[in-house]
Design a protein around this nucleic acid. Sequence first.
RNA 1: GGCGGCGUACCCAAGUGGUAAGGGAGCAGUCUGCAAAACUGCGAUGCGGCGGUUCGAACCCGCCCGCCGCCUCCA
Length: 488
Amino acid sequence: MLRLYNTLTRKKEVFKPLAGKLVRMYVCGVTVYDRCHLGHARSAIVFDLLRRYLQFKKYRVRYVKNFTDVDDKIIARAQKEQRPWEVVAQTYTAAYWEDMARLGVPPADLEPKATEHIDGMVALIGKLIKKGLAYPVEGDVYYRVSRFKEYGKLSHRKLDELLAGARVEVDARKENPLDFALWKASKPGEPSWPSPWGAGRPGWHIECSVMSMACLKQSTIDIHGGGQDLIFPHHENEIAQSEGATGRSFSRFWVHNGFVTIDQEKMSKSLGNFFTIQEVFEKMPAHLGPAARREILRYFLLSVHYRGPVDFSDQHLAQTKAALDNYYAMLIRFSEVVWEQRAGRPTAHTRRILAILKAFPVEFRTAMDDDLNVPAALALFQQLITSANRYVSVEGHAKILAKIRQLFSHFGGELLGLFAVEPSKWSFQPWSFVPVVAPAVDVDALVKEREQARRDKDFSRSDQLRRQLAAAGVIIEDLPDGSTRIKR
RNA sequence: GGCGGCGUACCCAAGUGGUAAGGGAGCAGUCUGCAAAACUGCGAUGCGGCGGUUCGAACCCGCCCGCCGCCUCCA
């Protein structure tokens, strides 16, 4: 039974979709005016994980993630770059997909764009006006916040509390400073669509109300997600718009992920303390390939519970890599096991590992069912690595090794998107290792020569060869039987 | 000013009433020509501080200290 924290009730609640096994889920995507940063990466990974876990629980998930492709920031960017706003939107939409591919986040089932749903927005705004929940002023339309008695229920604030600290610009045309724009009259050169209130463009919040109901074909959806910074005003306003218009509950669960921070401060454009996904991939050490970089970043972002802040730093990425080294080192040991299957009663070692393997899925589910406790799940994988290493140092039933691999690929791979690097592509070099551009050495020949030197007890030659290999980025470990393990 | 969150070992991080998961770093041991790996053991009598409730608290309550977030665009 999955329990999810619901921002609306501030409690973990048992998740059950409205309609049988079908889950309707909508997540606020990005405004395409710039490259995505790590905060967007985290959100994308977290909700993709929620989707995967729901599917794992045999739910049929209808996952919608939108693009905001008309917005003040896009217009500003277009003006700055002297390009049409559509081109700016297209450029960063493409960049978004590129970043998601880097992260290993597949597309949602539907990825609607705001500009594809203008008609629906105009219709919804008309409905709100008719109900007295919105009013037009000089080509703009504002939501009449005071008329929606539940305004503030998501962010758990009352209207007067919001007003007290309001830093909103005073606009004499608005009845209440907290009234927000549903429709904005467009100035010349700005994106514009016809409407009963004149040519204009939609406000930010209306698109999500319209697209979630349209794409999910239901006025009440199961899960609505996004970053914590969207709780107010964005999601609060979505509720006001949707519930005001339909009279029905808009979303049953509100799920919000925590921030990525730098020196404990929220990563944000305004502070300028952000790293784009692209930058992070590029600044990782040169000896790591793209798949390893993806895995390190994913593991790092998943190593903290999704609602808490994750503090980004190089040191933390290095620690993450060290944790992943354990997994790939285990695989190397697996590949060295030569063990003849023996008949007879299972030994104590076999029974022990079998018990651990049997318990694993149960423990994994228990962790994930508790509001997606990924850090606890990752601890299980680490424990499994230790158990496997212990087992493999004594025995090595092929079936058991296969079962262990299968647990990693099923739970860690398909669900968490980890443990997916081609083992030979994993670099065991320390984070700070700088690949030498030295002439390529014949590794096999040097290793063979070293093995011979060791047999001849010529240890100074042996150590010299080890240094030579190390300089070429080859780590060698001597095994009990005299052979050599090569790691790169 | 209002509202909310957080503070767990050197670093990262689970745990939210029953006596401190896991990873990194470190130290010691087994093994080893050496080294590494792997395994084993050590490591917070303690969970920001002070009180309180309780048979029992990191987990509940109160006060204090520190950090952060939201109240404006933001994943």
